[in-house]
Design a protein around this nucleic acid. Structure first.
Lengths: 311, 311
DNA sequence: CCCAATTATACTCATTGCGAGCATAATAGG
DNA sequence: CCTATTATGCTCGCAATGAGTATAATTGGG
């Protein structure tokens, strides 16, 4: 399988059968709405074959996105490379390697893209939005069905195990909700046969939540989870913000991504004591209450030190 | 470059030119020695073509490693996928995608592998071992040469920028050392022309530190950095430990990976309050001082909750 | 013009986590 | 018996953090 060196002959036939795709999870957050770019009526993440023309994966992705959306891509990060044989049916003889990326863009979804191609990502993961408390669907549907699934195991210890895992990722039986475990929750639901993608294979009925082609929803879950982790220790939210913003707008963006609310005063304390922003001098009028100062991101912090994030 | 769908015809010719490799960063820590598996006299990481026969990348890697070393692979994590055109010379017409993995193994490097194929990883990164204080080579060689490099920039602000970056990743000018920035330090040295791999291209002379083939040292840096981050929030060190160990042995393993020492009492407090281990009932005789209790990892914690690591 | 609703912003307080140190216990080896 | 070495228990103080109180400045509706 693995040899100690790269160049050998017998691998040549196999190599021909390999092709590579890029898959992008492109995120924006116009007025506190967490959205992701999709194609084909929200069923598919934008992707395509990886060609030779580009210097690197990142530059290829960046060029393509900027051309498609007309907006600069602020931040790019590689997510994961998938190459499992069961990714799709045609791969019995041919292997597709999919390299997925997370990209953040500052701008409002615009004219260049069809209006419905940016989707609120909670359509795909309705159980992930806890900004107004835990969604009813968790207690009403998900937890009971996970309990059923746990009970269905043969051995005692396996039942316990399933229940513990379920409780720990979904935060019931007084564990608390950890918003970063997006992928773990999706995988648990998949394993329990509660998402459409699993139903296709094993049968049964899924819990609510829009499905996607192939394993795209899993890739999206990976991206959201990664982003939720990242905002806590790197100032990446600013890649989603307009040049000037109020602190509440910034907070709303963080909350949109994290899917939980934060304490307003403490949020501001954190942002300010880290010197992440500076006042523009202007005020925002349309806050609906007392006018708020406008701030901009201090780009200098990126050089000064390896800074913490927003949480 | 990217299309909205995977299956199109014009990409076919290009696809044929793509091949995929796996590259492994395999780590062990026999008696507090951080070692990595290498081939070709320590110049190369084990790697080989990625074949179609396996269900997934991970299972392929696992099978291969267990067969080669005769020891089970405790933990596997994908590191990064490289596909930049300038990775090597032959790739003008053919693109090699390299998928790199980090793997941890519990056992002592053994009979199955030649004795020198496990190398202390600080041979490759002598500036990374701060267990007995900052290595002299940092103040004596690296810092002066980085200052030279910073001074060599044309514009004032670029000089400042370089100096700030250098100070921040290498922890001089009273910033403190952040052991996680392994990759950032390597990349800075590369950019400054101070590692052999850069010297090959730009000329000049490198600072001490064993070099590797192609970009293997960069991949190793990625792996070490990732592992240093990971041990802080996931209990992965235990994958490197024998079934029973003293708390000091555990601490030495953590220190070996992190490259810094930790406060003994606080370390124990942390381990115990997290319920990561349980007493075996046995005592270790050969500690050289007061006998120490032997502990084992509580595997149950992996199900119970998403636990923190050792720091 | 006043009042309710909404948002901004300044402080305070208690708890926790964590770095750092002191003190004591138990062994080996000379 | 003394010293070196390791194990282990405990305390102190600071910094970060979660949560609440109080006050200021708007808008919009009666």
């Amino acid at each position: 399988m693995l040899k100690t060196s790269g160049a050998d002959k017998e691998g040549a036939a196999e190599r021909r059968a390999i092709s590579a795709d890029l898959i992008a999870v492109l995120v924006a957050a116009p007025n506190g709405n967490p959205v992701v770019l999709t194609v084909k009526e929200g069923t598919t993440l934008p992707s395509g074959p990886f060609a030779l023309g580009h210097r690197s994966l990142q530059s290829g992705l960046r060029d393509w996105v900027e051309q498609q959306t007309g907006h600069p891509l602020g931040y790019i990060e590689q997510l994961y490379t998938f190459a499992d044989r069961d990714r799709s049916i045609e791969e019995a003889t041919r292997r597709v390697i999919s390299i997925s990326y997370l990209g953040l863009t500052r701008e409002e979804p615009s004219h260049r893209t069809p209006p419905d191609s940016w989707r609120n990502w909670y359509e795909f993961f309705p159980w992930e939005d806890h900004r107004t408390g835990a969604p009813a669907l968790i207690d009403d549907i998900i937890v009971p069905r996970l309990r059923q699934w746990a009970d269905a195991a043969e051995q005692q210890d396996k039942r316990q195990n399933r229940l513990r895992r379920a409780a720990s990722v979904f935060g019931f039986d007084d564990r608390h909700w950890n918003e970063e475990l997006v992928l773990q929750r999706y995988e648990l639901l998949f394993e329990a046969g509660l998402v459409e993608e699993a139903v296709r294979i094993k049968g049964g009925t899924a819990v609510p939540g829009r499905t996607m082609t192939g394993d795209h929803r899993r890739i999206l879950a990976t991206g959201i989870g990664r982003l939720r982790t990242k905002i806590k220790y790197r100032p990446v939210v600013f890649e989603l913000m307009p040049p000037a913003f109020t602190l509440l707008q910034l907070q709303r963006a963080v909350e949109a991504l994290a899917g939980v609310t934060v304490h307003k005063q403490n949020f501001r304390r954190l942002i300010e004591q880290q010197d992440l922003v500076e006042e523009t001098g202007e005020m925002s009028a349309d806050t609906g209450g007392r006018p708020a100062k406008l701030f901009r991101f201090r780009h200098a912090v990126l050089d000064e030190r390896l800074v913490a994030g927003t949480k």
